[in-house]
Design a protein around this nucleic acid. Structure first.
Lengths: 333, 333
DNA sequence: TTGAAAGCGCTAACAA
DNA sequence: TTGTTAGCGCTTTCAA
């Protein structure tokens, strides 16, 4: 494989001139640049990254940290694969490569991230989940490793850049939309009470419901353990429409509901959030908010690259817009 | 950050001794190794990979090539995320890092793989799909880059290592199982006629059906465009049980079927393949063959690492065993 | 505007 | 069993 020296010889210049041409250094005259580039093309020259890394300390590679694999189902959500491909695409445009970090637990994750960082296998990281007191985040912060997180701005907001949707606003919008379609009794369905995302969306629900002066229902938890109480709640509160935490919950719900002989949207209108590929595998097709995963991924790369370029880039909270995709699961009453 | 020289000085040996200790070179006495390791620990020494790469030409990083993103739904299947995490886990054990390659088309994919290889960002690759006349595979073959493919051994079987399940056997097993539960008219449902995997599974179905001397039905294609003819086929052939190509198709099918008021397994028994995380989100829970994605991923890493270690490792076809997970979607008649 | 040369951290051939 | 030393391919300071 051709090296910088080969190119230099061929172009009749010194290796440093070739290196500068590679970086498009303004000190080099256009004339020689053209000469050098011709030589590169002819030899099919591709810079050796390892040598670059060694000389500059920069790897041009971004680490993407997946959430701990505590439950298999979570990681299976379309979200992760979609954001991974979006990130990779934008990274390519910035001539960065994407490496991944996974682990069964947060501890394993820290270990892997630590290694990746210390071995200089990544210049910076993108964390695909957001938790308070996350040891991974703490490590990165302590070691002053550049990183951004995709998710809610839960802590250290003055020190870390968060990229996220306005989940509260989505929850609100959903209620307003349902109400505009004539619904007066609206419920909120989630699968657990602890997730950050779910809580924000529920908060939005509560805000909207109180603003509209319509009935506020407690969170309806839909999971295998809570089916019975879920059923009971449906009977006592008699909602005509449900805001569902995300498409996965909606899928499970619609599954169950179909099985019970309940009809969507006749018996209940359902509006969900994420617009994942799930939305069109269920019947009826799901009306759901698109959270723009592409943009979430790309913006996170852009922000990280900006920080990499200039350490003093101010941490910020970036909000990616969402929009409604109307399909079949909501009806007017 | 501590370098090999720092360690050498601290331990009172030469840098090469430290390097050899790192590689656990048998030429170095246990005594000095202990001394050196103590010095490493004390300094928190971590080898600089870039320097290693430059000196040895080995990156200790594996490229994982995802299928072209032609349809968003495919990549969203739980399979990819699961195999990615399995691969990463096994790679970690072999102190390898995983980098990913994605692209909208095969052309983009080749471009990215080419770059990764020429920039020395990966020693070898794992391809997560299997196609004939795949330009990516061709490039890798031409450049003699080590790689393995997870999927059917479609071509160049004497030159490339394939890791896969015996999809034909799974198709057969499914029919035998259904027949053992009393079913005599069994159909095979797929979503398209072209996928390699689906074809193999259908072949297994046909073999079994002919072996059992029971009725052989044509492939029942279930997709949004073919719903009507699918319905008609169901009515004319009157199967009591269906072998479904994979869990995603099963999910869509059960969705639709529930919506139609058809009851599973009362009206039709359904057996599927993959045992993805989908299997327990549908009602009824899906009886399906587990294809052991973990093992598929890990074995591919092991094989690739073996090839990396010894170029002359013989290409082989590795078959990962499968097993049935009985849940609720099959009943005896 | 360009070149010479030192050095990034590690490995491995050779010598001892 | 260990040390010396010459690179690996690139960047960058300093000098011209």
């Amino acid at each position: 494989m051709a090296t910088i020296k080969d190119v230099a010889k061929k172009a009749g210049v010194s290796p440093s001139t070739v290196s500068r041409t590679l970086k498009d250094n303004p000190a080099i005259s256009e004339e020689t640049k053209i000469k050098v580039r011709a030589a590169m093309d002819e030899l099919g020259y591709v810079p050796n990254i390892a040598a670059q890394v060694l000389a500059t300390g920069l790897t041009h590679s971004l680490g993407v940290i997946l959430p701990p694999l505590t439950n298999r189902e979570n990681i299976s959500q379309p979200f992760y694969m979609e954001i991974l491909t979006a990130i990779n695409e934008e990274a390519s445009c910035n001539s960065q490569v994407v490496s991944i970090a996974t682990g069964a637990t947060l501890d394993e994750l820290v270990k892997q991230v630590k290694l990746m960082h210390r071995q200089k296998r990544a210049d910076g990281f993108i964390i695909l989940y957001s938790e308070t007191k996350d040891p991974v985040k703490d490590y990165l912060l302590k070691e002053k490793v550049p990183f951004v997180v995709i998710g809610a701005a839960v802590d250290n907001t003055n020190k870390v850049t968060y990229i996220d949707n306005d989940n509260k606003a989505i929850g609100q919008e959903a209620v307003f939309y349902l109400n505009s379609r004539g619904h007066q009794t609206i419920g909120f369905v989630t699968d657990d009470l602890f997730g950050q995302v779910g809580q924000e969306r529920y908060q939005g629900y509560k805000d909207a419901v109180s603003e509209l002066h319509i009935e506020s229902l407690p969170e309806l938890v839909f999971s295998s353990q809570t089916i019975d109480s879920f059923k009971k709640h449906l009977r006592t509160f008699l909602p005509t429409a449900l805001v569902v935490k995300d498409d996965l919950v909606a899928l499970r719900l619609i599954q169950w509901v179909n099985n019970q002989g309940i009809k969507i949207p006749k018996d209940y209108s359902i509006i969900s959030i994420n617009n994942s590929s799930f939305a069109e595998i269920m019947h009826p097709f799901l009306t759901t908010y698109d959270i723009n995963i592409q943009e979430l991924g790309k913006e996170s790369v852009r922000k990280l690259v900006a920080i990499l370029k200039d350490e003093n880039t101010e941490p910020q909270k970036v909000t990616i817009p969402f929009h409604l995709i109307e399909r079949e699961s909501v009806t007017s009453i």
